[in-house]
C-alpha cells in the first residue's frame, strides 16, 4: 500500500467490515483481450503486406482470414463464458443501451465477424482478389474500433483509475500490431519471403517499444497524479503480489522480442524472428493479465 502521511497521523485501521469482493473480471477477460488483439491484428498486417509485398502476401488472403475468424471466435467464446447469465446474451441485441461500450462493442464485433465470413467467401469460394481487397479496406476500418472498444469499456470503469482512455486505446492498438505481426511471422512460413518478414519484424519491434514506453511512463509518472493509481501500482512494485508477473511480461512481450529482432536483422535469421514472435504472443497475455487484475485488488469502500 502506498505510504499515506494520513495513516501515520491518524493510525487508522479497519477493525470491522464485511469481506471485500475478490476478482470480478478474471483470466477469462485476459483471454478475451489477448485473442481479440490477434484477431484484428492479423487483418491490419494482411492489409499492410498486400500493399508493401503484394507478391508474397497474395496467397495469405484466405489463411489470414481463417486465423482472424478463429481468434475472434475465441474472443467471443470467452466473453460469453465470463457472463454470469450467458443465455441472456441476446438481451444486448434486443435491449441495447448505447452509452455502454459493451453494447457498442458487441454490435461492432458481430458486424466484424460477418465481414470476415464475407472475406472467406470471396477468397475461398469466389476466388475474387479484387473484391477481397476492396472489402478488406472496410474490414480494416471496422477493425480499428473493434480493437479500441475494450479500452472504452475499461475507461468506463470509473472505479479503476488506472485505466485511462488515451493510454488504454494506444495500448490496445499496439497490442494488435504486436500480436498481429507476430502471428503473421509464424503464419507466413515459406510463403512470405524474408523481406516481408523483415517488415513484420519492424512492426513488432516498434509496437513492443511503444507499449513498453507507455507502461514505464505509467509506472513512474502515474503515481504522481492520483492516489488510487499510486496504490494500485504498489501491487507491481517491491514485493507486491504481481511484481514478478509484471516484469516477466515486460521482458517476454517487449524487451526480449526487441533484442531478438535486432539480432535477427544482423544475422538475417528467420528462426530468431520466429522466437521473437512466440515470446511476444506469450508475453502479451501476461502483460494484459497483470493490468487487468491489479486495479481489482484495491478496496473500493
Amino acid at each position: 500500500m502506498a505510504a499515506h502521511e494520513i495513516l501515520a497521523a491518524t493510525n487508522a485501521v479497519v477493525t470491522l467490515d464485511v469481506a471485500l469482493p475478490g476478482i470480478v473480471w478474471p483470466w477469462l477477460v485476459t483471454v478475451n483481450m489477448w485473442a481479440k488483439s490477434i484477431g484484428t491484428g492479423v487483418i491490419f498486417m494482411l492489409f499492410l503486406l498486400l500493399r508493401k509485398h503484394p507478391e508474397a502476401a497474395g496467397s495469405l488472403r484466405f489463411p489470414t482470414t481463417v486465423v482472424s475468424i478463429i481468434f475472434i471466435h475465441i474472443f467471443l467464446l470467452f466473453t460469453l463464458a465470463d457472463l454470469h447469465q450467458p443465455f441472456k446474451m441476446w438481451h444486448i441485441f434486443f435491449y441495447p443501451h448505447l452509452t455502454s461500450a459493451i453494447t457498442v462493442g458487441a454490435w461492432m464485433a458481430t458486424a466484424f465477424v460477418g465481414l470476415l465470413f464475407l472475406l472467406a467467401f470471396l477468397s475461398f469460394i469466389k476466388k475474387d482478389n479484387a473484391a477481397f481487397d476492396k472489402t478488406l479496406t472496410w474490414v480494416v476500418i471496422l477493425a480499428i474500433p473493434v480493437t479500441l472498444y475494450t479500452a472504452g469499456l475499461m475507461s468506463q470503469c470509473t472505479a479503476r483509475e488506472l485505466w485511462q482512455m488515451p493510454t488504454e486505446s494506444a495500448q490496445m492498438i499496439f497490442a494488435a500490431l504486436l500480436s498481429g505481426s507476430a502471428a503473421m511471422i509464424l503464419l507466413g512460413g515459406s510463403k512470405l519471403d524474408y523481406e516481408a518478414k523483415k517488415t513484420l519484424g519492424v512492426v513488432l519491434g516498434l509496437s513492443a517499444m511503444m507499449s513498453f514506453i507507455l507502461y514505464m511512463s505509467e509506472y513512474v509518472f502515474g503515481p504522481m497524479k492520483a492516489e488510487e493509481v499510486a496504490a494500485v501500482l504498489e501491487y507491481i512494485k517491491g514485493d507486491g503480489p504481481y511484481t514478478v508477473m509484471f516484469w516477466l511480461g515486460q521482458w517476454i512481450a517487449y524487451l526480449l522480442p526487441m533484442l531478438l529482432i535486432v539480432l535477427s536483422r544482423t544475422s538475417k535469421s528467420e528462426n530468431i524472428l520466429k522466437l521473437a514472435a512466440i515470446l511476444a504472443l506469450a508475453g502479451l497475455w501476461l502483460v494484459k493479465h497483470v493490468w487487468l487484475i491489479i486495479p481489482q485488488l484495491l478496496p473500493m469502500s
Binding site: P21, V24, W25, D82, L83, H84, Q85, P86, K88, M89, H91, I92, S100, I102, L153, Q156, C157, A159, R160, Q296
Partner: peptide, 8 residues
Amino acid sequence: IGCAGCVM
C-alpha cells in the same frame, strides 16, 4: 446478463 461491468 451478469457481465459485472457495473461491479467494475
